[in-house]
């Protein structure tokens, strides 16, 4: 009993640290809504989270639902990480994605994201289910094992 109670405490977590702005994604991740900062003046989406619009410098940014489709720019498998959570699960897939809405995001691959909802199935997944450069993907915003917001990409069929 004591052991199972201690498990969550000692278990390695991904880095949970975010800026104040980055942390604002958490409630949307809980709801499974993909939202990014959108400018009320020029309507452009910006990412990573920022204080003013990266296009027109307006300060009027708010979290709005963002079209989820994009294209993989590059995929690499990480064989090294300073973070114990990742170091124990190498290789780890990292994707960079150009969203149709504009921004470039780094994302986990849905088939190797180590997310709580993917549970123990991670090992069994097939290589083809991992997106590669040029592939069209759908992005979602989820909570990772540190209850922190992260992007996860899944290939579009």
């Amino acid at each position: 009993m004591a052991d199972s109670k201690q498990m969550p405490v000692t278990k390695k977590r991904p880095p949970a640290k975010r800026t104040n702005l980055g942390a604002q994604l958490k409630p949307f991740a809980e709801q499974g809504e993909l939202r990014l900062q959108q400018c009320s003046s020029c309507q452009q989406f910006s990412y990573p989270p920022r204080e003013v619009c990266g296009h027109c410098l307006s300060g009027d940014l708010s979290w709005q639902v963002c079209p989820a489709e994009g294209q993989v720019l590059a995929r690499v498998d990480l064989h090294n990480s300073f973070e114990p959570f990742y170091a124990e699960q190498l290789p780890w897939v990292l994707l960079s994605i150009k969203l149709d809405a504009g921004p470039v995001v780094y994302a986990h691959s849905a088939s190797h994201a180590g997310l709580e909802n993917s549970g123990s199935e991670v090992e069994a997944l097939e290589i083809e289910s991992i997106a590669n450069s040029g592939d069209r993907v759908e992005l979602s915003l989820q909570l990772d094992e540190a209850e922190a917001p992260v992007f996860v990409a899944e290939p579009l069929k």
Partner: peptide, 12 residues
Amino acid sequence: TFTRDASYPYGA
């Protein structure tokens, strides 16, 4: 700030 939110959490 950008790495803290957008790359470091991904193992990158």
